[in-house]
Design a protein around this nucleic acid. Structure first.
Lengths: 346, 346
DNA sequence: GTATCCATTGCACACGTGTGCAGGAACCAA
DNA sequence: TTGGTTCCTGCACACGTGTGCAATGGATAC
C-alpha cells in the first residue's frame, strides 16, 4: 500500500540498496543521484517503515513508560518531563497505565517486550516486582522512578521522600504543633512508607508522641478519600492539630472535609500536602506542600535511560546509578501555629 | 538476542512454520505437537516480535493518540476512557502531545506514519488541519475528537459545546444576571468559538447586550491566565456580574483573582467553568460547571475507531459518522443571583 | 595500450514472522 | 497392490529495510 524504497528504486531506475543508502545519508552515493532519489521520495510521500527498520537494526527508537494512573496529575507532570527530553533525540513514547491492576501489569510488560521497546521507565511506585524482574531478565534497560523494589534495578531516580516528609514535619513542629497526624496511601507502596518514616524520625527527634490512631492509611490517592478519612481524625478524643497528608490530592479532600465540619484551616487545624500539583496553589486556603521537582525527575529519568542506550555504554551492568532529588518546602496558607487552647498537656 | 520461533523450532525438532502455526493457534497442527511447542516457548521465554509480525500482517495493533497537552487533566480523562476501551481488544496506545507547537505536530504525524499505527485519534482541538489531511492522504483511519477542522474527517466524536455553553448561560440568566462576560482560550480553536456562540445565542434570545469588552480571550488554559484576565474585567466601568469561563482551569484562576481582589463569589460575582475536572469540586466555593462526559467521549472515540478497523468494514469512505454527546449542567456554589444594587438600569 | 585506483552501484542475504502449496505418512476401500 | 483421502509438516517465498562484498566503469599513471 504505502510506497517503499523499491517503488522509489523503480521510478528512479536504481536498485533499492542505492535508495536505502541515499535516504540514510550515506555519502558513498553520488550527490546528484542522492538528490534525485530524495526528490522522488518526497514526491511519492515516502515514509520509512519503522517495523522493517527495527527488524533489521534491532532498535525501535521507542521508550516504554509505565505509570500508575493517567488521571493523576503527578504522573502527567513526570510524563511531560520525559517527553520534553526524549523528543529531541528522536525517540517516541509508548505509554501505559497499570491502574494498580496486576492483570493489566502483566499485559503491559508483555506488550513492551513484544514491541521491543529500547528501554523502559517504570514510574509506578506500586508496580509488581515480579513484572519488573521479568523485564530485566529479558535484557531491557530500565530506569526506575520512585520505585519500591529497587533492589534489582541498577538505575533509578528518586525523590527523597524521607527528607521531604521531615521538612514538612519540622515546619509543623517549629510552628508549635505537638499533635501531628499522618494520612497515608496504602496503594503507593514504598513511597508512603518513606514519607511515614520521615515523619516518624522527625517526631522522635522532637520527642513527640505518635499515638497509633494518628496514623491512617487509605486505599488510594483521590480527594474524596481524604475527605472521609479526616472525619475519623476528628472523632478522636484528642484530635490532631495538624495533618500531614501523603499527597496534595488527599490534602485537598482533607481541606474539604474540614470545611464541611466547620473547622477552619489553619486556625484550628493545619494541613500539608505533598508533590505541589498545579491545583495545590488554588485551594482555599492555598496548600502548604513539598514542591517535588516532577518535570526534573522525568527529565533526569529520560536522560539516564538515553545514556544507557548510547552504543559506547556497552556494559550497563558495570555500575549502579541512583540519583536522588530533593524537593523544597513551599509554605502557603494552610499551616499556622496551633490555637493555644488546643495545647494538650495532661 | 531474544529467542525466536527458529530457536524453538530447533529445540523441538520441527520447522519454524510449524512453530508459527502452533503458537498462533492454528488447529491444523496436531494437539500434542502444539502443546510441546507451547511448553518450549514458555520455557524459553519467547516473546513474538511485534515488528516482524506487523511487517508481515500490515497490522500493528497500535493506535496513535494526539492530545494537546499531557499536563491538562481534561485530556488525561479522555485518555483514560480510550485506554479502558482499547486494552481489552489487544490494542496499545502511542501517545503524543502537540503542546500547540507546529514543529512538534509535524514530527508527531511523521512518527505515526512511520510506526504504521492502525489508526489515529486526534483530540487536540487546535491541531493543524494540514497535518490532519496528511494522515488522511496516507490512508490512516482517523477519529477526531472535538476537532475544529472537521470538514475532511468522516468520523468524529463531539461534545456539544454550543449546547453546554447555552445551558450555563441560561442558568445565569435565570438567576437574574444581565451583565455576563465570556473568558475564552484562543489556543483551543473551534472549541472556544462554539462555547462563545452558545453564550451569544442565549444572550440574544434573552435580548441581553454583549459589550465588546465583555469578551476576552487569553492564550492558553492555565489557571494563572484566568487570574490575570479577571483583573481586566474588574477595571471596566460596569463590570460583569457573572463570568462564563472557557474551562475549569481558567475558572479556578478567576476565583483566585477575585478572592485576591476582595470580591466574594457568588455574592458579588458568579463564575462558571466547563469540563468538570476533578478539582472543580474542591475549589472554594465549589465551581458550577458543565459536566462533560470525558471518559465516555474517549470510550466512544475508541469504539468508533475499532469499528473502522474491523476487516468487514471495507469501505470506510462509505459513510460519515458523527456522534455528538451532550454534557449536563452541574450547579455548585459559585453561582447565585446577582446583588440587587449591582443591577444596572440606565 | 595496459595496469591501477577510486567512485559508484547492484547483488544477495539477513532480520523474525506468516502462509500457499506441495509432499509425506497413515489409513481405508477396492 | 493400487488409488484415494485425511492429517500433519516442511519448503520456499514474502513483508520493507540495511549492509558486506563484488562488479562496473571511468580516470589516471606508467
Amino acid at each position: 500500500m504505502a510506497t517503499t524504497i523499491k517503488d522509489i528504486a523503480k521510478r528512479t531506475g536504481v536498485s533499492h540498496s542505492t535508495v536505502s543508502r541515499a535516504l540514510r545519508g550515506n555519502t558513498i552515493i553520488s550527490l546528484e543521484t542522492a538528490e534525485r532519489i530524495r526528490r522522488a521520495a518526497q514526491e511519492m510521500g515516502y515514509q520509512p517503515s519503522a517495523a522493517a527498520r527495527s527488524l533489521k537494526t534491532n532498535r525501535t527508537q521507542v521508550l516504554g513508560v509505565i505509570v500508575s494512573s493517567l488521571a493523576d496529575p503527578f504522573f502527567s507532570e513526570i510524563l511531560y518531563g520525559i517527553e520534553q527530553c526524549v523528543q529531541d533525540c528522536g525517540y517516541s513514547l509508548f505509554i501505559a497505565a497499570s491502574e494498580h491492576d496486576p492483570a493489566r501489569e502483566r499485559k503491559i510488560v508483555q506488550t513492551m517486550m513484544e514491541q521491543r521497546t529500547d528501554g523502559v521507565i517504570i514510574c509506578s511506585s506500586s508496580f509488581s516486582a515480579e513484572q519488573g524482574r521479568q523485564l530485566i531478565a529479558h535484557g531491557f534497560p530500565i530506569v526506575a522512578v520512585n520505585y519500591q523494589a529497587a533492589e534489582g534495578f541498577h538505575y533509578s531516580i528518586y525523590h527523597d521522600d524521607v527528607d521531604g516528609s521531615r521538612q514538612l514535619t519540622r515546619h509543623l513542629i517549629n510552628l508549635g504543633h505537638r499533635r501531628i497526624a499522618y494520612l497515608g496511601n496504602s496503594h503507593s507502596g514504598r513511597t508512603t512508607l518513606d514519607r511515614l518514616s520521615g515523619y516518624r524520625s522527625e517526631m522522635n527527634a522532637a520527642r513527640l508522641p505518635i499515638p497509633d490512631e494518628y496514623i491512617q492509611h487509605v486505599h488510594g490517592g483521590e480527594p474524596h478519600l481524604g475527605q472521609t478519612a479526616v472525619e475519623r481524625f476528628l472523632r478522636l478524643e484528642h484530635p490532631p492539630t495538624a495533618i500531614l497528608c501523603f499527597n496534595d490530592m488527599l490534602a485537598i479532600g482533607v481541606l474539604q472535609g474540614l470545611s464541611l465540619a466547620g473547622i477552619s484551616v489553619p486556625a484550628q487545624i493545619s494541613v500539608t500536602g505533598f508533590d505541589n500539583i498545579t491545583f495545590s496553589a488554588y485551594t482555599r486556603p492555598a496548600l502548604t506542600t513539598l514542591d517535588q521537582p516532577k518535570r526534573s525527575i522525568g527529565r533526569e529519568a529520560a536522560e539516564l535511560l538515553l545514556d544507557l542506550l548510547k552504543p559506547d555504554n556497552g556494559s550497563p551492568s558495570e555500575g549502579q546509578q541512583v540519583k536522588i532529588l530533593k524537593g523544597t518546602l513551599l509554605v502557603r496558607e494552610s499551616t499556622a501555629a496551633p490555637e493555644t487552647q488546643g495545647d494538650c498537656k495532661k
